[in-house]
Design a protein around this nucleic acid. Structure first.
Length: 946
DNA sequence: CTCTCGACTTGGACTCATTGGG
DNA sequence: CCCAATGAGTCCAAGTCGAGAG
């Protein structure tokens, strides 16, 4: 059983192996119906990751299974969505989190008063109800659900019951008690039972009735919903204070008053003194004092509130946390567990994460609700409509939902002002005087001499246009051609050299200095928990380095000032002091429906913004990451029917439908990106919906050759065998069009996604990438992992990872030294071969009692026993083998980037569970930052399957 | 409905620090 | 111990996608 179970799920993709073999599937199916369903699924998945070029898979897959047929039939009659939804709908809604919540979220947004607030206010409004898509009912649910679970079931049967019950309990607890203590308990529970297990379980159970996933969510949401994660965290943190969420919300109203606070500048002035102020301030006293002083407007109540909410002192936090950071996660977890009461109320990040992780999905749901509620309260103060809020479960992940309750941070750090070097460049051979501003830009250009940009006319042209504006019409310098930047370039090189020459100590000192300056910007306190900030450094000025043939490359990206920056921070938090004397922030907002801490508009394209977010290891990011993977897993339940549906539409008379079907097929099979429309002032790249006729070449009888530039102008080349109807449809779409016409002229990403959403709640084009990537990993690992040592298992993992990278077309440029390295390795191998040869000769001689030959340099060698020689030979052989393998891998991976998929597409729970099952240390696969980022996945059940 | 805005994820290259083989 | 290769971390460009405005 076991075997079967495990196998089944995975089967599908056989990239390498046997695509055709339906046999396998078939064989298996017969046995267990449940399994069979799984099999089927798999089979349907035909994609193959194979080498980029070749993906051949058979279309055949889908058609085969009997079951499919059934399904299909059903489906055919009604839209897939229909069938399924009915059952699920309720659940489903939960999952989504919907939002009917229209409550206000707005209030938050509110803006700032600030003088400066130019028009910017337009933030999105708060929450919109996103409509829950209740519309789509599903009927297929039953089937689906039954299908999937087999695996899980078999595995965890015993556990199931248990776990489940536990879960429930846990949840309950949580909900009910607010007290921190309880929370802790709950946490513990969670820890014991990995999330995954929960999920699995649920899904298993559900089987017959409802789609697993959904159910889960439903459950969760119900229970947990009331208590937002953040709240829990908060509690923990504050436990001492005994502050609760409620308090917060209650207070809010008051806080609202504060709203009027001035923008940072004024505030900052007041605050000015201690730079650290902000950080410290939340603390108890400091606050009260400072706050009153600082914020003229802040009401006392507000201040007090503040105190309560953020109990943690930043400084303290830091210390603790920092300590923790050094520890391995596991330790940290433990530690945190221990910490509780004694230490401040600070919850370590890890703890938090775990917690969230365990329940995150649900929690999230609830948190939203709660949030919305709170928000409302805030703005209006009254309305607690909890019920109301509840109804709004279905929030679209998008926004409108409250993301935090309290947010404290110190803003951003600016690059140092330009230091003129005074080196004169030459114009027509003569030194030219430049103002510091002119020199700064000249230096940016000079420094790029060695890059490829210098070969591009567009780059030079754009640079010249911008620089010329700085020089002024009548400047000596009249054209770029006669400019010689060499002196500046040389100066720059020597500066670089100097830096390199610094002693380690000097470097260290410098580093420390930098750290000291930056430290306060590195952390934010979100709902009482200290979290790392992602990019707190404002981008320095420079020349725009667009990728591919970007029309704006070389343009001057001007310096960003505080007056360009909009700060988002808790109402009760001190506005960060403006680091540049005499300047002030553009605007201060208190919008808790978004996660950014700051933003400014992109100087190159004012329509775009640059945001400062929390780091990937933050729970806010972790939560959404987890949701992403859960959504992808949900797709697993729908994929069969979705495939059946689009297959059916390959021949639809409705051209739009047909295009949607084919596009969906390509996205599913090839993991193409959606392909939004692009402006003319962007590089000309495409995704699925924007494919041009010329990007796809047909090769009879049924192959399609793709060739286009995708995101980041990375080339996508692939020839794939497709199902005949697809081939014919492409033929039809290309007919009577020019090479640069849109292949899918009736389609855009909006329509496509709208359609996808009818098939599955929350489904969008990019979910297929996540799904296919994670599914492939899970499948490959299950299929290919054999007994062996860690190194061998790593090979299996890396191979699976590589396959995913190929599917997703994650490329990297070949390193400059690649060929040199290969040559070197080859030489070494040759050398070793020579040694081998000699050793063999010596062995021969030794066996005959003769002395060894002389070594190449004429020296005589030691007389070795034949056994010793044999040993040496085998060692050398092993060495050669290893080198060969290394070379192959290196050559193999020279253009493939494994990191991207690991970071963005592979559900970490697959990896963690696999590591647990096969006793591979997780550190072998995830580095420190990945472990931090995936903290939410670390307690997954070893039986977890995607 | 379409277009634009806004927020957030994805992604390759660069930079800096660490590592490990000679 | 030294240096190149590796790997971690940073940077910031370039996508995706929801939602509101028109």
């Amino acid at each position: 059983m076991a075997v079967e179970t495990s196998d089944k799920p995975n089967l599908p993709k056989n990239v390498d192996d046997d695509d055709d073999d339906m046999p396998i599937t078939f064989k298996r199916n017969p046995k267990k119906s449940p399994l069979y369903s799984e099999v089927k699924k798999t089979s349907s998945q035909s994609h193959e990751g194979q080498s980029k070029k070749q993906i051949t898979d058979g279309p055949s897959d889908k058609p085969n299974l009997p079951k499919n047929v059934d399904v299909d039939d059903d489906d055919d009659d009604m839209p897939v969505s229909f069938k399924r939804n009915p059952k699920k709908s309720p659940l489903y809604s939960e999952v989504k989190k919907t939002c009917s919540q229209s409550h206000e979220g707005q209030s938050n947004k509110q803006i700032t008063d600030g003088p400066s607030s130019n028009g910017q206010n337009s933030k999105p409004s708060p929450m919109k109800p996103s409509a829950g898509i209740s519309k789509t009912p599903n009927s297929a649910a039953v089937k689906t659900s039954s299908n999937k679970s087999p695996v899980a079931n078999s595995k965890s049967k015993p556990l199931l019951g248990q776990k489940t019950s536990i879960d429930v309990k846990k949840d309950t607890k949580v909900i009910e008690n607010t007290p921190k203590v309880k929370c802790d308990d709950s946490e513990d529970d969670d820890d014991d039972k990995p999330l995954s297990s929960k999920w699995n379980i649920k899904s298993n159970h559900d089987n017959k009735v409802v789609a697993p996933v959904m159910k889960t969510s439903a459950k969760d949401s119900d229970e947990d919903d009331d208590v937002p994660l953040s709240a829990k965290l908060l509690r923990n943190c504050n436990s001492e204070t005994s502050t609760r969420n409620n308090d917060d919300s209650d207070k809010k109203p008051n806080s609202k008053v504060q709203k009027d606070r001035q923008n940072g500048s004024s505030t900052s002035n007041k605050q000015t003194k201690p730079s650290t102020l902000p950080a410290k301030r939340e603390l108890e006293n400091s606050d009260s004092k400072n706050s009153s002083v600082k914020k003229s407007k802040v009401s006392d109540s507000a201040a007090s509130i503040k105190t309560k909410q953020v109990t943690v002192k930043p400084s303290e936090i830091k210390t603790q946390e920092e300590d923790d950071d050094d520890l391995p996660i596991s330790h940290r977890i433990k530690k945190s567990a221990d910490k509780p009461s004694s230490t401040k109320k600070i919850v370590t990040k890890v703890t938090k994460v775990n917690k969230s992780g365990s329940t995150s999905f649900k929690k999230q749901t609830k948190s939203k609700k709660t949030n919305s509620k709170q928000t409302k309260n805030k703005s209006k103060k009254s309305g607690s409509g909890s019920e109301y809020s509840k109804s709004t479960k279905l929030l679209p992940s998008g926004d409108g939902q409250k993301k935090w309750t309290t947010l404290v941070h110190n803003g951003v750090i600016f690059p140092p002002p330009y230091q003129p070097h005074g080196i004169k460049m030459l114009y027509k051979g003569k030194p030219v005087d430049l103002t510091p501003e002119q020199e700064e830009v000249a230096t940016m250009y000079a420094v790029m001499r060695d890059t490829d940009y210098m070969q591009k006319d567009k780059f030079k042209e754009n640079f010249w246009n911008d620089w010329r504006k700085l020089l002024g019409r009548n400047h000596v310098i009249q054209n770029l051609k006669d400019c010689d930047f060499t002196p500046i370039y040389d100066w720059y090189q020597s500066e670089k050299e100097k830096k390199k020459q610094m002693t380690t100590e000097e470097k260290k000192a410098l580093k420390e200095e930098k750290l000291k300056q930056e430290e306060k910007y590195m952390w934010a306190i979100v709902d009482g928990v200290k979290e790392k900030v992602g990019n707190f450094r404002v981008e320095p000025p420079g020349l725009f380095r667009g990728r591919g043939e970007h029309p704006k490359m070389g343009k001057l990206k001007k310096r960003i000032h505080p007056r360009d920056i909009i700060i988002n921070i808790g109402e009760d938090a001190p506005v960060p002091e403006c680091p540049i004397p005499g300047e002030r922030w553009k605007e201060i907002r208190h919008d808790n429906t978004v996660t950014w801490l700051c933003y400014w508009s992109d100087p190159i394209n004012p329509k775009l913004f640059k945001y400062v977010f929390l780091a990937a290891s933050s729970s806010l990011k972790g939560q959404s990451d987890k949701e992403k993977y859960e959504k992808a897993r949900l797709l697993k339940d729908y994929i069969e029917n979705i495939r059946a549906a689009y297959t059916k539409d390959f021949t639809s008379k409705d051209i739009t439908k047909q295009q949607i079907a084919v596009a969906t097929y390509l996205i599913d099979k090839l993991a193409l990106r959606a392909g939004n429309e692009k402006d003319d002032d962007e590089a000309d790249t495409v995704g699925c919906c924007t494919l041009k006729v010329e990007n796809v070449t047909r090769e009879a009888p049924n192959k399609l050759q793709f060739n286009f530039l995708g995101k980041d102008s990375i080339k996508y080349e692939n020839t794939v065998e497709v199902e005949l109807p697809v081939y014919n449809a492409i033929l039809k779409f290309q007919k009577d069009k020019g090479p640069s016409d849109d292949l899918f002229d009736k389609l855009d990403t909006n329509k496509l996604n709208t359609h996808l959403k009818e098939l599955m709640p929350g489904l969008t084009a990019k979910v297929f990438r996540t799904y296919n990537a994670s599914f492939t990993l899970d499948d490959k690992l299950a299929k290919d992992t054999k007994d062996g040592d860690v190194a061998e298992k790593m090979v299996v993992y890396n191979h699976a990872n590589k396959e995913v990278a190929i599917i997703c077309n994650h490329q990297r440029s070949v390193s400059k030294s690649h060929s040199a390295q290969m040559t070197k390795l080859n030489e070494k191998i040759d050398e070793l071969q020579a040694v081998l040869k000699e050793l063999k000769v010596d062995l021969d001689r030794a066996r005959k009692g003769k002395p060894p030959t002389k070594s190449s340099d004429g020296k005589s060698k030691r007389n070795l026993a034949p056994e010793a020689l044999e040993k040496k030979i085998s060692q050398t052989n092993a060495k050669v083998e290893k080198m060969r393998r290394d070379m192959m891998t290196k050559e193999d991976l020279k253009t493939i980037a494994l990191g991207t998929s690991k970071l963005n597409y592979l559900d970490p729970r697959i990896t963690v569970a696999w590591c647990k099952r096969h006793e591979v240390p997780i550190e072998k696969i995830f580095n420190k930052s990945l472990i931090a980022k995936f903290a939410w996945a670390m307690d997954v059940d070893p039986d977890f399957r995607f």
